[in-house]
């Protein structure tokens, strides 16, 4: 087991080295990249992906996948946006529990379909990706929630906070990462998710309630997507039925896979995921600085996923060979 852990540690060290090398390379060409200002830009680009990645990490560790997170983000943001527009007198903080609860309900619906009907999560969430997006259009009557409808206190959360003026949304994102770390490492639920993912057949024999754990994982994924939804409204100041959250799942899956979370379940760390998110943030911030057109971004994300998959596989093989255990 120690050996496995060492390999994983190497994986995280590897991403860290990649980040450092990347930043130095860009910095040699564009010294502006190595300033505090640019750190702020990178950190402001990542909070939503960070929160989504934490949720997706738990889902993948449990040997599932959730493709509907972007649509859950959009739907929750729209519910909150509509609330702000229709009831401007409500205390704006109410938006947080509402967004999180809305997301959780959608997530539980995914979880129920997966557990009751024994359906593969990838197809279920491909369906709800479309379904939730459609519902977002319906509840909003296909209209955008405008900047003037979003409370200025909420928008201010993306600009500052009492803690060294670090914007609230960055603090929240790292808080969620910390929370996920605690769940993954120090709770029974965390251990059960890992056990379920590494060997679904043996999980019931170990006394794990597979249905309950799966439901909780999908509910968490929904709740965190809901949180990302209200933070979207804070960050960008509007909620659009078609744009908000579109393509979010791909960014998140890219970050998580780069971070070393195995698609075969059972393997993945919060540290690796955080680093994966930061690497994506560095790339996204560096491209325009270097004058590389934004149209290359998707090809870069796609190739990074494929490369990460190949690395993942070679790490697994080496791990399996050195402890002479069959492939998981």
């Amino acid at each position: 087991m120690n050996l496995v852990r060492n390999i994983l540690f190497r994986r995280e060290a590897g991403i860290l080295v990649m980040i450092v090398l990347f930043c130095i390379a860009v910095g040699l060409y564009k010294p502006q990249f190595l300033t505090g200002q640019s750190l702020r830009i990178i950190l402001l680009l990542t909070p939503l992906i960070m929160i989504g990645a934490m949720a997706q990490m738990l889902v993948l560790v449990g040997r599932h996948v959730d493709l509907s997170i972007g649509s859950m983000l959009g739907f929750s943001a729209m519910v909150v946006g509509l609330m702000y527009r229709e009831f401007p007198d409500l205390w704006w903080v109410i938006g947080f529990p509402i967004a999180i609860a809305t997301g959780a309900v959608l997530g539980i619906f995914n979880g129920l379909l997966v557990t009751i009907f024994k359906l593969p999560s990838i197809i279920v969430t491909l369906g709800t990706l479309s379904l939730y997006r459609g519902l977002t259009f319906i509840i909003s009557d296909a209209r955008q929630i405008n900047r003037s409808d979003i409370p200025s206190e909420l928008k201010l959360m993306s600009r500052t906070s009492p803690v060294f003026d670090i914007p609230w949304i960055i603090l929240i994102a790292f808080g969620i990462a910390l929370m996920t770390y605690v769940i993954a490492r120090h709770t029974q639920l965390g251990r059960q998710i890992y056990a379920l993912g590494s060997n679904p057949e043996a999980a019931p024999l170990r006394g794990i309630d597979v249905t309950k754990v799966t439901l909780v994982v999908f509910a968490l994924s929904g709740a965190l997507s809901g949180l990302a939804g209200i933070l979207y409204a804070s960050r960008w100041g509007f909620v659009n039925p078609s744009n908000t959250g579109a393509g979010f799942e791909f960014q998140v899956i890219a970050a998580v896979v780069i971070g070393g979370v195995s698609i075969n379940g059972g393997v993945g760390t919060v540290m690796g995921t955080v680093l994966g998110v930061l690497l994506l943030g560095c790339v996204a911030a560096a491209l325009p600085l270097l004058g590389i057109p934004g149209s290359t971004q998707n090809a870069i994300y796609g190739s990074v996923i494929l490369i990460a998959l190949l690395i993942d596989r070679s790490v697994r093989q080496r791990g399996a060979a050195s402890i002479s255990r069959g492939g998981a």
Partner: peptide, 19 residues
């Protein structure tokens, strides 16, 4: 070019200020 997306437009704007 920000491709009419808020994220990309923001990073392009930040890059303008830095460059």
């Amino acid at each position: 070019y920000g491709d009419d997306q808020p994220e990309k437009s923001t990073t392009e704007m930040e890059a303008l200020l830095a460059n």
